[in-house]
């Protein structure tokens, strides 16, 4: 891929005795949203964790912005410009919302204008600024996890199923936030089961099955091709509209 910010080439990952990723190859173009689709257990979350160094690859190469990051520790990968929003939100329950956000601002105290921009999408975070993150609802925790990842501009955002169990009103705010991030030239790799959400945001798509990429292309092409959707995902956009 000519202008890929992130490239995975022949990536294999083992978790214990299980061979989860079995040669993953795909690229994430710079400045757009790439959606990783696939049924449960296809290896999407493991791919995200492998990129982040949480499940290091046993074979293959991952390059980010021209540098090899496979083999680096998670903190080194994070400091190279990758932010990760895990599936289970991963907020620190004993710390306040403010402390969670400040912790993620690696370059120093959070920028006030950036904070206000985040609050414009997720106003609940301003309301509960001094409350422990543990008391937030599931949706608010998801907002916090996303807000924490974007508290500073990052080159690449890895976001794992942000809409899982989230109210539609919050999903609309998320779409707004991700659209603006796209305009700011942030590259996003999104794992998503909600095809409507995925197709409204995605520029490119990679579909996984059994630990491999089985399809890669433009999201627009997949969104309009119901036969392809049925073959790859067992669904059609019309059914999920």
């Amino acid at each position: 891929m000519p202008d890929a910010l992130l490239t995975l080439a022949g990536v294999h990952t083992h978790i214990g005795q299980y061979h989860i990723l079995q040669g993953v190859d795909f690229g994430v173009p710079r400045g757009g949203v790439t959606v990783l689709l696939g049924r449960n257990g296809a290896g999407k979350t493991t791919t995200m964790r492998t990129i982040m160094g949480l499940n290091p690859p046993s074979r293959g190469q991952i390059t980010f912005d021209g540098a090899t990051i496979s083999g680096l520790t998670p903190h080194a990968i994070a400091r190279s410009g990758v932010a990760y929003v895990p599936e289970q939100m991963g907020v620190f329950a004993d710390l306040t919302v403010a402390e969670n956000m400040t912790l993620a601002a690696l370059a120093g105290p959070p920028d006030t204008a950036r904070l206000e921009w985040i609050f414009s999408f997720f106003p609940a975070l301003k309301k509960f600024w001094r409350s422990p993150a543990g008391v937030l609802s599931g949706g608010q925790k998801q907002m916090l996890a996303i807000a924490r990842a974007v508290i500073e501009p990052r080159a690449l955002l890895l976001i794992d199923e942000p809409t899982k169990g989230i109210a539609p009103a919050i999903i609309d705010n998320m779409i707004g936030a991700f659209e603006e991030l796209k305009q700011q030239a942030t590259t996003i790799l999104l794992v998503e089961q909600n095809f409507h959400f995925a197709s409204s945001l995605g520029d490119t798509v990679a579909v996984m099955d059994d630990g491999r990429i089985v399809h890669a292309g433009s999201m627009a092409a997949l969104a309009t091709d119901t036969t392809l959707q049925s073959r790859l995902l067992g669904l059609s956009l019309d059914a999920h509209g």
């Binding site: 160094g53 520790t73 998670p74 620190f92 329950a93």
Partner: peptide, 13 residues
Amino acid sequence: ENEFRAGALGFDV
């Protein structure tokens, strides 16, 4: 609370 999340935020655990 979660060493993996702290690492993924950029902290050398």
